[in-house]
Design a protein around this nucleic acid. Structure first.
Lengths: 208, 208
DNA sequence: CGATTTATGTAATGATCGACACAAAAATCA
DNA sequence: TGATTTTTGTGTCGATCATTACATAAATCG
């Protein structure tokens, strides 16, 4: 390569991974520049030169999270053999990823910015959009299940997708409260127990 | 009454209600003294004289929340005719209370302090304990259902309670993301669809 | 080599955080 | 009335927030 100027003295990818973990554990607003520079092992001018600002660093941390943790949770969904297997894999992967001893519990995308605030509202809106995309992605996979004859065309796949994503988001709270992997798996199994009742025609009461 | 000294010039109960709503909307750390004094219509020395500190004000707001919103969500649970009716009432009340146009979406107890932080960790621990009490309360109501013969003695009532509380906590996230009352009710119905499968003996796979 | 470019460490910016000192105001008590 | 007690409004405390000036260090280019 041989680029001009003094070379960077730290590993940018490693520093980003550290930053991601701090945001994950403490939230966007709850993370201070002091927290970040301490965890990344660099001074603030280096952080600004490499990542732009706290908000831009967070956005790059979001990408890193999607590529690593997000992939581990969601990776099995698109190629799952059935719609049920996709949902099952999604929730069971969640139970595992949310309870690793070396990583913060729960989900970065769900927990990082839940409250409206002037100086973080763009971040919050981004996260809301990402969560909506999760519902849309699961709905799309369920729609495949309708095409495959696994799910009734009468079923409300949007509602089913929203339900399972809601359970997964609740698991973030539970993980924060100290729930074990086994407990999260039991929650996932309970949620999956509704499946047979959901994939048929909707009950008459729903359209009344 | 006739107490000594200059009388308070503001309504303490009304000011507490305003403070509760600010904490509810913006979270504990996300709420500043400036936010509070503006919403309550008083200056900070009056706030400190009447409520002690930001943390003590929050704790009193928590009590107020439990007595009003909490009661509206939970009130029907203890006296419900059946265990199923209790859970149904819990989730349906939640869908209504979480989506009132004049109030912040979602639950104060669930959303206010999810991240560990030095100057708010006692508050966070209190909220964790309150959420654990919710699970314990629902479990106790389900246990009554076991006694009444509605639920199999083999069923894992602790897991069932944790599952339904998890769904309700996920509904807080959904409400924050703009879900409507109808959408939350659909989530609740989907969660309730698991009920028949949950109240029998646990599947063999669960104990393997 | 000297000139240029980029990164680093120190230190400081203005803004905001929660909390409080202080004195004036408004009530009761003697 | 004067003494006592409590609240109110103004102003400010040190600490911390995200961000950046500035000078120095370390690399490449000519």
């Amino acid at each position: 390569m041989a680029e001009r100027g003094r070379p960077r003295a730290f590993d940018k990818e490693a520093a980003l991974a550290r930053a991601m973990e701090v945001f994950w554990r403490r939230g966007y607003e709850g993370t201070s520049m002091t927290d970040l520079t301490a965890a990344m092992g660099i001074a603030s001018p280096s952080l600004y030169a490499a990542f732009g600002s706290k908000e831009e660093l967070f956005r790059q941390a979001l990408k890193h999270y999607s590529a690593t943790e997000g992939e581990e949770i969601w990776g099995g969904v698109p190629g799952a053999p059935t719609a049920f297997a996709a949902v099952e894999n999604y929730l069971m992967s969640t139970a595992r990823v949310f309870t690793r001893r070396t990583k913060p519990p729960g989900c970065l995308i769900v927990l990082s910015a839940l409250h409206p605030a002037e100086h973080s509202d763009r971040v919050r809106q981004t996260l809301i959009a990402m969560r909506a995309e999760t519902v849309a992605g699961l709905k799309a996979r369920l729609q495949q299940g309708v095409g495959a004859g696994e799910i009734s065309p009468q079923a409300d796949v949007a509602a089913i997708a929203r339900y399972y994503v809601t359970v997964q988001q609740g698991m973030s709270i539970q993980a924060r409260d100290g729930a074990s992997r086994r407990e999260l798996e039991a929650i996932a199994r309970a949620a999956l127990a509704a499946w047979p009742a959901l994939i048929g025609a909707p009950p008459a009461a729903a359209s009344a």
